[in-house]
Design a protein around this nucleic acid. Structure first.
Lengths: 331, 331
DNA sequence: TTAATTTATGCAATCGTTTTCAGGTTATAA
DNA sequence: TTATAACCTGAAAACGATTGCATAAATTAA
């Protein structure tokens, strides 16, 4: 694959690079005949402008960055698919980075993307991220940022999230309608906004149905599998809930695993609910029902907002917060 | 985040950009005092060389590209983790692309990576890719390519693969030792090298154990879920195998799903084996055992080979084919 | 004292593109 | 014939970094 530059074309046609450049961009200053000549030759030698030279010149790249905690997670890989489809259809490329739930990695990703002059980024915060100083540094200098899923509390940004409250409410209500009254709630640290919203949904459902909230039935877990296991074991040993509702995508599987390994100690019809996009939950036994987030759509919408912002001349001073509905996948 | 250039530093210190550049790269031509001055100032203003300018100049980027069919697949996301760890530890970045099993997308990814001047690529071929003309075009012009997992038959490239033959052999033998004699084999199209190798492993195990090969028990499937379903249904309706062995990662789940939905028509102890890195197979019921490929290591090794090649001055004319062992995960 | 050498620095070209400015033709109007 | 558009085209600067070459100053040798 030989790389052809403007200069090569210019030399071959006995024109200057400026003329060639203008001809290819269909400038009104160039004679139609010249334009045609250039266009044909460029096509023949398969000329493609060097995107690196363009980036250097324009300080942009027609690429957007994505930072997610982990691609080995159905929710995020589906979201990425949504992002890619939207971006590619509009002529943008997508650069994917993983923070692996580490703040340092998140910072590094951010720096990398910024230096490579991506035109903006989509980010779902790492589990260790408690403030977004590191992001503000960049966003101040004309660097568009859209948050999705795990978003900061702070205003002044576009955000796309799931309706965590309603999702948790619906799942809890479903369990209540099955006749369950002691529903265990295992969730992530309270620092995450999603934790709080889901917790509220859970509580509200209990309240609406006249069930008293029992704080002994609520446990907060970090991302360590052992913690998840311990939480489930503890529940089974002491509180004996009649249903489980895990509210962290990352922990759902670990909790479920612990639950499954002790299923013989529980009534056979003990339902287990997760808040996860795991796409094989229906194959599990005992059943794993889930609150599903519209991951693909979330990515697509977030990308759309980012690209609209990039392509609009004046920066809007209004910031959207799009809330997408979840749905229950009952297994 | 203000962007500082060499010129800014030069202006601030009343030096020329060349002096600053040389000072930062610790050139012997520069006075120690000047070096120190420059280094300190650069640190203070948090100077970082513009990677785009460097790419333009050097025609490289200290980044490598990865093309995989799909990141929403445990095997590939684990492989990517291996690739990233190796690459980042050596100061390279990783650009991830998905071909979505489409040859056109694969070509587009390739072009994009080439134009963005990645120093080399790691690729696992799309299911639609039957020849690698499109890759040869690039690899001829000093563009390093390493294949992993789904590799072409053609020589002249570094490759990292799993020992598909042994994996299939071991799985089949395991089933035979359970007393199974009519083992159904559902696999991908024969055009893929992995299909053939796995098929051979299956056949060899039967042969070694004196079981005649029954071609009625072997079915080839494309990537369409319906095909998988039809294959399983057909087996259950007519051949009534006493065990199943799916040999395509992509199809394993669809086949398993069809199998599960009709499990009541089969003896309860009918084993189902897959050739997949699905990390939740042990949670399924009926059991799903799997042949597991060392995905992380495969990515790591492939990246190592690529980077070694990039960093060695003279190109070696020898090409490695690394074969990694698989193992059985019995559920 | 002068020439040669060392040391430290700057100029300018380069990578590929776009774009401003300026220049050169040709045609039209006065 | 001359002034004035109208129309094409090219030279050069810019983006940020590196580097071969030139040069100035300081030191050493003759």
């Amino acid at each position: 694959m030989e790389v052809i530059t403007l200069k090569d074309i210019a030399k071959a046609l006995n024109l200057s690079t400026s003329t060639v450049s203008r001809a290819l961009r269909d400038s009104y200053e160039i004679n139609e005949k010249t334009k045609k000549l250039v266009a044909e030759y460029a096509k023949k030698v398969n000329y493609r402008p060097n995107p690196i030279a363009l980036s250097l010149k324009d300080n942009k790249s027609r690429a957007i960055g994505v930072i997610v905690p982990e691609i080995a997670n159905n929710f995020f890989s589906q979201a990425i698919n949504g992002i890619e489809d939207e971006a590619y259809s509009r002529g943008y490329h997508v650069v994917i980075c993983q923070s692996h739930e580490s703040l340092d990695r998140e910072k590094e990703n951010l720096r990398h993307l910024f230096e490579r002059r991506v035109d903006g980024i989509l980010i779902s915060l790492s589990g260790k991220t408690t403030d977004i100083k590191h992001i503000l540094e960049y966003s101040e200098s004309n660097f568009a940022v859209v948050f999705f899923d795990r978003v900061p509390e702070i205003g002044g940004f576009h955000k796309v999230v799931a309706d965590n409250f309603s999702g948790a409410f619906a799942a809890t209500e479903y369990l209540i309608k099955l006749g369950k009254k002691r529903i265990a709630h295992i969730t992530s640290p309270l620092t995450l906004s999603i934790t709080q919203e889901r917790l509220e949904g859970y509580k509200k459902a209990l309240e609406v149905h006249g069930i008293e909230i029992d704080n002994e039935l609520i446990k907060y877990c970090g991302f360590d599998p052992e913690e998840a296991k311990a939480a489930i074991n503890d529940f089974i040993n002491t509180q004996k809930p009649d249903a489980f509702f895990t509210c962290s995508d990352r922990l759902a599987l670990h909790c479920y695993e612990a639950f499954q390994s002790r299923k013989d100690e529980m009534p056979a019809d003990t339902p287990f609910f997760g808040f996860t996009n795991l796409n094989v939950s229906h194959l599990f036994s005992p059943k794993l029902s889930t609150v599903v987030q519209p991951a693909y759509e979330m990515g697509e919408r977030a990308a759309k907002i980012l690209l609209d912002q990039l392509e609009s001349k004046r920066k809007s001073k209004e910031f959207d917060k799009i809330v997408l509905e979840t749905y229950l996948k009952i297994s």
